[in-house]
Amino acid sequence: MQFPISGVEVNPAIPFVVAFIISFFTSMGGVSGAFLLLPFQMTFLGYTNPSVSATNQLFNVVAIPSGVYRYFREGRMVWPLTWIVIIGTLPGVLIGAIVRVAWLPDPQHFKLFAACVLLYIGAKMGRELVGKNYSQSSKAESERRFHEMIRRHQSKADRMEMTLKPVRVDYFNLKRLGYTFYDESFDISFWGLFSLSFVVGIVGGIYGIGGGSIIAPFFVTFFGLPVYTVAGAALMGTFVTSVAGVLFYQTIAPFYPAVTVAPDWALGLLFGLGGMAGMYLGARCQKYVPAAKIKWMLTGIITFTALKYIADFFGY
């Protein structure tokens, strides 16, 4: 099948299946999977012009609602955290889109930029995981009780339908956000969250993945928030900023007639449908996977992608 906007020719089953597999695993960590779809499109499909960023964001728009719905049903949406992510990343994504089109249209330079971002995130998460003994930490004890509770109350009949204890927001103002999840309290600076969201929004806008797509690893490493509560907020933030990103790329396309800027709607929708199914199942299964394993999975995926980009840049 030929996709005229991107120039990609591929069996339509391949984008669907690839998006499904990627989204199933990455959605457990609050990541849409768009950051892995980008190298797939650029490397395997040969889709390298700036519109690949817009197509990637279109994938987010279609795929993410199913995962957010699942987290919402289970009471694991920390809405104040979600609003901070949205208002912080939204302006950053728009700035990032301009930077991508105006200063990073060359795919090789773009790959090097993306590699630096991902390698930093992967290294930060890896150092934390190697340097921390989870069996002796209070977080590990909380996680152990959490999974023991699941195993104790589950039967084969209701294993996938059990309702988890929801997140409780204790306070939220322009200074601090505090919430409790399974007897563990978390207190975070409002402006710290906002500033990080804004910077990550710019990076996400350039990369074409929506600001929230890479906010989850930052929240886990910099603020020590549990991945079980970060995932829903990160995905919701990604959805809102991706909607804005797609509309923005489509709007500025006439101003850059020499470059393909608007998304490939057919290809993006096909990716999105696969991602929708994978993301729902990933969000549904997340509570059965220990947080440390999810973090290791994210670290491995992020580092591998970064090293692949660096290898591509130097021609290996």
Score class of each variant (00 low, 15 high):
F239W: 15
V17S: 09
V203M: 15
R145S: 12
H109M: 10
F146N: 01
S195Y: 06
Y171M: 08
T82M: 12
V220E: 04
F59G: 01
Y280Q: 14
P39Y: 12
G300Q: 06
V169Q: 06
S135M: 08
G282A: 07
V167T: 13
I87F: 13
I95V: 15
K165D: 10
A19I: 08
R127I: 10
I87R: 03
K132V: 11
A114H: 00
Q250M: 10
A306T: 06
Y69S: 12
G75K: 02
Y171I: 01
N133V: 08
R145V: 04
R159H: 08
Q154A: 15
S195H: 02
F186G: 03
A19Y: 02
S53Q: 11
L235R: 07
F110I: 04
L90A: 15
K308L: 11
L269I: 15
Y228A: 11
I214T: 05
I202Q: 02
L81G: 02
R70S: 13
V17G: 02
F219R: 00
A311M: 15
Q286K: 07
R70K: 13
K295E: 13
F172C: 13
T163M: 11
A54Q: 07
H153A: 04
Q286N: 12
L269F: 15
F186K: 04
I121Q: 00
H147S: 08
I22F: 11
N60G: 06
G126T: 13
G211A: 10
K293Y: 15
P80M: 06
V117N: 03
G211S: 09
A114Y: 05
A306L: 09
L129I: 15
G211N: 07
G282H: 05
T89G: 11
D187P: 00
F113M: 09
L94V: 14
A13V: 14
G33W: 01
V259F: 11
T48M: 11
I14A: 09
H147R: 05
S53W: 00
G245L: 07
G275L: 09
F35G: 00
F248Y: 15
L90M: 10
Y228K: 14
P257A: 06
R145A: 12
T260G: 05
I206G: 01
S142Q: 12
T303N: 04
V17E: 03
I215C: 03
V259Q: 15
V289Y: 00
Q154P: 00
Q286P: 00
R100G: 03
L36Y: 11
A258N: 14
F16H: 03
F24G: 01
L118S: 01
P107N: 06
S213V: 11
T89K: 05
V259D: 10
